[in-house]
Design a protein around this nucleic acid. Sequence first.
DNA 1: ATAACTTATTAAAGATCTTTAATAAGTTAG
DNA 2: CTAACTTATTAAAGATCTTTAATAAGTTAT
Lengths: 340, 340
Amino acid sequence: MDTTPKTLHKAIISSIRKSLLELGSATKAELSEKLDISFPTISKFLSQMEKGGEIFSVGLDESSGGRRAKRYAYNPEYMLGLAVFLEKTETNYTIFNCVGEVKEQGETPSVLVDGGVNLLTKFIEEIVAETPSKICSIAIGVPGSVDNGKIFYVPGYEDFHDLDLEGYYEDYFSIPVVVENDINAAVLGFSHHNRMKDNQSLIYMYFGQNGPGAGLMINGDVVRGKTFFAGEVSFVPQYKEQNFGQALENRSSTKEGSVEYQIDSISRFVATCTAIINPHTVIFSNDEIETEMLSKVAIESSKYIPAEHLPELTVSEWKQDYLYGLQRLCLDLMIMNDGV
Amino acid sequence: MDTTPKTLHKAIISSIRKSLLELGSATKAELSEKLDISFPTISKFLSQMEKGGEIFSVGLDESSGGRRAKRYAYNPEYMLGLAVFLEKTETNYTIFNCVGEVKEQGETPSVLVDGGVNLLTKFIEEIVAETPSKICSIAIGVPGSVDNGKIFYVPGYEDFHDLDLEGYYEDYFSIPVVVENDINAAVLGFSHHNRMKDNQSLIYMYFGQNGPGAGLMINGDVVRGKTFFAGEVSFVPQYKEQNFGQALENRSSTKEGSVEYQIDSISRFVATCTAIINPHTVIFSNDEIETEMLSKVAIESSKYIPAEHLPELTVSEWKQDYLYGLQRLCLDLMIMNDGV
DNA sequence: ATAACTTATTAAAGATCTTTAATAAGTTAG
DNA sequence: CTAACTTATTAAAGATCTTTAATAAGTTAT
């Protein structure tokens, strides 16, 4: 519980940061009311944060009949975050500020394929060293299973198995670090970027070389499951002798593999998810499916489930959502940061 | 944020209650350490709670080399809870104390069928009036869709549609009230009674007159979904021309409807859930399925999904889990209670 | 039996938030 | 132009938690 001076101080700072970043700007009275913290306390903390350059005054409000209130905003450059994307073909990075503006980005050959953790470390070290402003948190996305920051399985890359990358880099860089599965980061990114209400359920579809997969957010939380198998939807039995993966694969190797067949498969999957989880939205990557096909999926799935219960089907840009997700994870670390 | 004297006081009291009920008993030092609250503050609050009869001393610990510490426990009779089960055939109630011991129970004809809210109100009034000790919270279970305490749909009983039963009874009785769907309460009850770790995923199956249904808990939270359709698993397409409900119904009207056919249906459903959510446990009611059949389901579902990812299949007593669930909901209200 | 030591608990001082009162900076009406 | 009023902000007093110091109640060794 936040009753000791240190933990109370940290909690107050974090809640002020969170509010200013969410609202864009606020007055003392607004913060006091929103956070249920007394006026002199808010005043004291804002004064300290302004003195340290973390926030700044953006002017006076219009008068509402009395004295005009002073309005404050968070300094977006006060902290920078680094997102690193480990992919099979390359390793990317993006540096961004507190409001998500990209300051710099680049890439290097894939550390998964060649170079391993040592090369990744060197790569991050160079980025951190060459960045003029201070990088305050790091988020790393990986195409594999992650549990509390520990990678334990990346299909095909044994060097990264059973690796507490998060703990290792927090020790190494003395910077808060978070490691997350790429699809889970994308679901998180889509949810936050589209300002979805709390506690919503989403399914983010992808159709990879190994068959379909999905990232799940249920009641606002990413779902991993008992053995981190959640989202391995290729295995869903759909027909008497075919599961989802087999049904989609079939479409490319036989005459039967028409678009209609594919639509039915996907529709059945949407219906299955509706009956079990009842998600708000199902997202497809816009380079994997066309909106025309989505319309057909919507129509087809209403044959299995009453239409009013079906999720909204939408397309989005997976890469961008992935970046938004890693940014969100970084920002959560920055808000909690007390090392500055 | 808990910074005002009133909210801080309430938060400290609630955390002490929660800890004593979870631990069974504790010393001042143990509470101070567990809750990260200073020793004199713990001491002050325990003194007040002891004076008010809410806790009592259970003696001195064995010496560990110095002065022997005093040990405290929560008074289980300090608050009682009332659970009311609205069913199609009858309405039941149970009165219990803080540790779940049943003090009294009984039943009346079903208020869903006859009498409506007025009869339910009268029924609860009589129970509250006739209970010697004070009832501090009420939980009501309903066989229908519930959103934040508001019933909006009970199949077949329109009197109860769009009814904020929770709000209405909190005003009427001035007692904290919670209203929950019966299956969701059972999932909650099973989870807590079996002391499952936080953030686990469970599926509680039932096979009713209207086909199969399920209660879902994912990452420790009950899942309702966009339109409260989550768990309507009857609609899951399983074969080319049959969904889950149809597949199970088929078994009782044709030769094909053998036990093997039923096992395959249920196994496919278990496999489907594993591929999407990867739950820890799937629970069946022990009056609806036999353990021998469950073994067969386990074997059969491993044909669809690698066995290491499959959930544990277990049977449990639905009625008891339902009671445990309503008790849990009541206890959560008691812990937060500041009206005593 | 008692001094030295260990551990539990309370008392006192310090820190920090809230509440109340006072002051500051505006607007409006005469 | 100024008095009266409104709203924002700071100052002072009060409340309550934490930290530090003191006291209490034990055990152990001599």
